[in-house]
Design a protein around this nucleic acid. Structure first.
Length: 827
RNA sequence: GUCGGAGUGGCGGAACUAGGUAGACGCGCUAGGUUGAGGGCCUAGUGGGCUUCAUCGCCCGUGGGGGUUCAAAUCCCCCCUCCGACACCA
């Protein structure tokens, strides 16, 4: 046991990182080699700085999955790239005078080097970065595809505008209604901007979720709510004074007889004209202006029940009643038709509005046993009941009343069934520099002309002044803007908006399967690898990134470019890394840097610490875990593997402890098989904390067996099993031990995952628990094969059990051989 | 408010899929050993209470209450708390 080197991760880890790359151990094999393929993907990082603790956690998990699959014999694709475009780069440019490109590429270099030091098993050859012209050329190409399919269009939409900086702000740049940079109150400004028609896919995005059995309910529910499909009816009202038809959407057509007022959203196109007709133009304009001045993010004013009468009336088609029209911010222009019927008795918002403004309340759904005097009501009744005061429908009970009224509306031509969505079209325009330019040319005679494929990419010019003093920084670059129309050759102007970075990340996983120069991705490689077998990433992307990627795949499916409709078969959302209960943040001063930890304990110990801390979906509180503990275990594994390698070739035991050693070896053999079974099953379900616990147990047992003098095959098997099974969690130490003391030439990642013998994995002796009246009274060791009768006899013969049975009559005995006997007494 | 998830030792967590020894594994702590000291390492102990010289043993215990069952952390009902998402969606 002398001459054993000490465990020095600082030396072995970089050594194997170099060696793996030289040998191409983690390269995916493109040629079919008979192994099943496994596309293991981790959401690619955004290079806003160096790798942080969240990366260490997320990559630790996806590494464990990928490496486990690799040793199990899968041909694993495990790529890495960077989501290089985005606002922080531009802010850094403004604040520190560095070009966004320089800042971004420097961060990528740093992240790459830290990820290498972490020992990630990436196929580095496939890496790319979305701000490379090589990549965004295809983002632009895909934009053109969407444009050609009628899925990209322009319309007027409000944006956050800082009047001092003269620039558009993203929502996250608006803090408490003020510009993040200069503190000026932010206003809304209407700009003509580009959208993707994702709403056209709302039903498919919703319905195809049935296929996503490998996604958590948590994410599916969030997506479902985000799409927000609700079924109801459209009903046609008419403005009495002007004859304007106005349609409303409602999920409760059964409450139509309870309408006592009518409300428009302030932005509704009819409002100005109606206010003039009603003689309320001045006050209404003030309200509209005030809302116009508020930033998009601040919706607080809408939480009030404020509103103004318009001075005109709407006619209820079901009974011809005229009700007053109002305008109120609680009605949203973006949802439904931008106008609602007011049913205060049965809608809480309408109820509060009616109380605020003294409007009538009329009950038309009578709940059983609940008072129906409007004056006594403290809240709207939005539940079931029976229709009253509703003309021909009186007495109709409320679940089916909705369908019956809707049918009647259609028959009478007063309305129709309708579906409404919460989902909006995807606004992809950014009046920003550091993104992929939208490849459109605006021609005075031809209109919106897409840049021809041969002219792509539309390169982002380097010489741009990004100091904020106008519209998009690109708009000031004359050389960029002034072009000729590709269709008619006349003078034209280039679009100066860039694309939302979510566009870049909606298709990157396709290009990882194989880059080509004449298409965004290789159809052949996509057919081989897609959909992604396992996608790992943060829950913060539960909605947008995942929804947009699903949308893109459906569009590409419709375009005949891919043959599947969902991009990610299985999705795993890992928890966050926090410290002392709070998210890591510089201002809080609780940031944990991964690199110093890697240098101190080794990448393997950090990975094990993260994985052992708890279930992968749970947050890891760094303050409650110990990298020293993981390091201690790996050191112990190191020592024991050297000792076991020596004892493993020593043949059967010798000396005075021979018999004891042989017994220990037999027990160890059973442990080995049990561990193989248990860890394999835990790994399959990503229960890595439990798998590691089992490996620790086997480590302890190997230590005891060696102590007892065990030698030979069982000892060797235990050490090999430990090394192979620890490899997905701690690849470096595993490789060093595999090729070092265990003497293999080939990588442990090319070894065969150990199988098990069910007979050996079973315990040969088990503890039989004996209960009397539900309480455990004795534990008896019995052979694993003990029969029901044997168990019953042994249990009834037990002195302890008999003491408890003293004087009582046995009613019945339940036997679950060989683990449990339950004796029930009478009385 | 709606939807989703979760409450187990001093701490992170096992056991929940299929009801059958609650607390695996680790951290921390305590004691002992090793060491010039410290650290490291090794060994043992570690849910609470009662009883005992010590054993043996008994009782309680998985957020609270009720239920089903020979048997409940696990299944059913009610309640409480915490976390997350959306939040005037008509």
């Amino acid at each position: 046991m002398t001459g054993r080197p000490s465990y020095d991760p600082g030396a072995i880890e970089p050594k194997w990182q170099d060696e793996w790359e030289a040998e191409g151990v983690f390269r995916a094999v493109e040629q079919d080699d008979g192994r099943p393929r496994f596309y293991n993907l981790q959401m690619f990082p955004y290079p806003s700085g160096d790798m942080h603790m969240g990366h260490a956690e997320a990559f630790g998990i996806s590494e464990a999955i990928g490496l486990f699959k690799r040793i199990q014999g899968f041909n694993v694709l495990n790529p890495i790239g960077w989501d290089g475009f985005g606002l922080p780069a531009e802010n850094a440019a403004i604040q520190r005078g560095i070009h966004p490109k320089e800042w971004t590429y420097a961060n990528i270099d740093q992240q790459r080097s830290t990820l290498r030091r972490y020992g990630c098993a990436f196929d580095w050859d496939r890496q790319f970065n979305t701000c490379d012209p090589d990549y965004y050329r295809w983002t632009q190409w895909l934009f053109v595809k969407l444009f050609e399919r009628g899925l990209a269009y322009r319309k007027l939409a409000p944006a956050n505008w800082c009047p001092k900086d003269q620039t558009v702000l993203a929502n996250e740049q608006v803090v408490n209604g003020l510009c993040e940079r200069c503190g000026t109150p932010v206003v809304r400004k209407d700009l003509t901007q580009w959208f993707f028609r994702i709403t056209e896919y709302a039903d498919r995005l919703l319905d195809d979720m049935e296929e996503l059995t490998g996604w958590s309910d948590r994410v599916l529910t969030q997506q479902r709510n985000w799409i927000g499909r609700s079924h109801g009816a459209e009903v046609d009202f008419v403005i009495e004074e002007t004859g304007d038809p106005v349609t409303v959407f409602t999920t409760r057509p059964d409450t139509l007889w309870g309408v006592t007022f009518f409300v428009f959203a302030p932005e509704h196109p009819l409002v100005t004209a109606l206010a003039e007709r009603g003689g309320t133009a001045g006050a209404v304009k003030d309200l509209q202006d005030r809302l116009q001045r508020a930033p998009l993010t601040s919706r607080d004013q809408a939480a009030s029940r404020e509103g103004l009468p318009l001075g005109v009336h709407a006619v209820n088609p079901v009974n011809g009643e005229r009700v007053p029209c109002w305008v109120a911010p609680y009605v949203l222009m973006e949802y439904g038709t931008g106008a609602v019927m007011g049913v205060p008795a049965h809608d809480q918002r309408d109820f509060e509005f009616a109380r605020e403004h003294g409007l009538d309340i009329r009950v038309v759904i009578r709940p059983e046993g609940v008072g129906t005097d409007p004056a006594d009501m403290t809240a709207a009744w939005s539940h079931e009941g029976v229709m009253v005061n509703s003309g021909p429908f009186d007495g109709t009970p409320s679940p089916e009343s909705i369908a019956r009224v809707t049918e009647w509306l259609a028959d009478e031509d007063l309305g129709r069934t309708a579906v409404s969505y919460r989902l909006r079209d995807w606004l992809i325009s950014r009046q920003r520099y550091w993104g992929a330019p939208i490849p459109i040319i605006h021609c005075p005679s031809c209109g919106e002309v897409p840049v021809p494929e041969g002219d792509l990419p539309v390169l982002l010019p380097d010489d741009v002044d990004f100091s904020p003093q106008g519209e998009s920084p690109l708009a000031k670059n004359e050389a960029f803007v002034n072009v000729t129309c590709p269709r008619c050759g006349g003078a034209a102007r280039r679009e100066t908006d860039t694309m939302d970075t979510f566009v870049d990340s909606s298709w990157y996983f396709l290009r990882f399967t194989g880059k080509t120069d004449d298409a965004p991705f290789s159809s052949e490689e996509v057919a081989k690898w897609m959909p992604v077998d396992q996608y790992t990433g943060g829950i913060e992307h539960a909605i947008l990134h995942l929804l947009y990627s699903r949308f893109f795949i459906k569009v590409l499916f419709d375009a005949g470019m891919v043959s599947f409709t969902e991009p990610f078969t299985n999705l795993l959302n890992q928890g966050m890394v926090i410290n002392e209960g709070a998210a890591l943040s510089k201002s809080r001063g609780n940031v944990v840097e991964p690199l110093p930890l890697i240098e101190r304990f080794g990448a393997d110990s950090i990975r094990v610490t993260m994985l052992f801390a708890g279930p992968v979906e749970d947050d890891v509180d760094w303050a409650t875990v110990s990298a020293a503990g993981a390091h201690k275990w790996l050191s112990r594994l190191w020592r024991l593997t050297f000792d076991a390698a020596a004892a493993g070739v020593a043949g059967s035991g010798s000396g005075g402890g021979a018999r004891e050693g042989a017994a220990a070896a037999t027990a160890l053999e059973r442990s080995v098989h049990r561990t193989r079974r248990g860890v394999t099953m835990d790994d399959e379900r990503f229960r890595f904390n439990v798998a590691i616990a089992k490996l620790m147990t086997l480590t302890n047992e190997l230590g005891k067996a060696l102590e007892a003098g065990a030698t030979g095959g069982a000892v060797r098997d235990a050490a090999e099993t430990l090394v192979q099974m620890v490899a997905p969690f701690a690849p470096h130490i595993a490789e060093e031990l595999w090729r070092g003391p265990l003497g293999y030439r080939e990588s442990v990642f090319h070894s065969q995952w150990p199988g098990w013998d069910e007979d050996l994995a079973r315990e040969d002796e088990v503890v039989l628990v004996v209960q009397v009246d539900g309480r455990v009274r004795d534990r008896i060791t019995v052979p694993a094969g003990a029969t029901e009768d044997e168990c019953r006899d042994r249990a009834l013969a037990s002195d302890r059990v008999r003491a408890h049975l003293d004087g009582r009559e046995v009613d019945r005995v339940i036997v679950r051989a060989p683990k449990l006997v339950s004796i029930v007494t009478r009385g």
